[in-house]
Design a protein around this nucleic acid. Structure first.
Ligand SMILES: [Mn+2]
Ligand SMILES: [Mn+2]
Ligand SMILES: [Zn+2]
Ligand SMILES: [Zn+2]
Lengths: 138, 138
DNA sequence: AAAAACTTGCAACTCAGTTGCAAGTTTTTT
DNA sequence: AAAAAACTTGCAACTGAGTTGCAAGTTTTT
């Protein structure tokens, strides 16, 4: 896994540092999306919160992670599985928020359906957030 | 219009006050969704920002307005057109954010399409946010 | 091994949103 | 119509997320 992490960072022209390695490790080991606070909690006292903010910012810009707008207006982050890059994300999958366990999941198997808007609207991007009960909580 | 406003407030068992009347008036006169800051700006110095927060909170609880999660994780509010009430919203329409003029619109004509999730997921609510260019900016 | 380029932690700050409380307003009761 | 009760408002003080400048530390390049 350390190998994979190095590869991802190098591939994105980022220096390999303790903080970045640790945070990327968290994302790789996690099946659901992480909020800033989750990351702070999971890294313990090891990194300054400013470093966490800056690392997330960098990962977003490089297309290593994508942000997920949740229906309660907090922000979560998840790994990009496709080859996203600098401003060119293409995660057209549905996002799911479980109202029982609170997890936010990328449903990679399901793409966002097309929708027909009234004449005159030009669609650039569609996001879909489904709330409900997840597989594990059913 | 003052009549309609009184009716809405009374119907929701709310006392008719200057602040509530003014804010409801703004919503009725507006075709796009309003952010907290828009309301503060449009009411001038007339009301304390705490009053604006509390009024929006009250309107939300009563189902007079609904909140819209935008893709940039700010919150906007729009009038409920259906008869929503205390925690029972049913605005199943698509929301549109124009990347040119910045307006957020309720597309009442288009309901959110059904989506099939993998077995085991129970869907409770679906939200769809479309980004693009609106009719007026085309 | 030295220089250059980049990353980190710290302290200080900003800005949105919240809370308790006393004064003011609206509604209900008499 | 006046008094009482119930509710709303503004103020001041606070909280917590996120940002910035800068000096010290680390990583990468030469
Ligand atoms: Mn995702
Ligand atoms: Mn709407
Ligand atoms: Zn769950
Ligand atoms: Zn527009």
């Amino acid at each position: 896994m350390q190998e994979q992490i190095q590869k991802i960072l190098k591939h994105n022209q980022l220096s390999v540092t303790g903080g970045r390695t640790k945070i990327l490790e968290l994302f790789l080991a996690q099946d659901d999306a992480l909020a800033h606070a989750d990351i702070e909690r999971k890294t313990g006292e090891k990194f300054d919160r400013v470093t966490v903010y800056r690392t997330l910012q960098t990962f977003l810009e490089k297309g290593i992670i994508h942000s997920i707008p949740t229906s309660d207006n907090s922000v979560k982050y998840a790994l990009c599985k496709d080859n996203c890059s600098e401003g060119h994300h293409h995660d057209h999958h549905v996002h799911f928020m479980c109202s029982v366990c609170g997890k936010t999941l990328c449903i990679d198997e399901v793409s966002v359906p097309v929708v027909n808007l009234p004449a005159g609207y030009k669609v650039e991007q569609i996001q879909m957030i489904v709330t409900g009960v997840c597989k594990d909580c059913a």
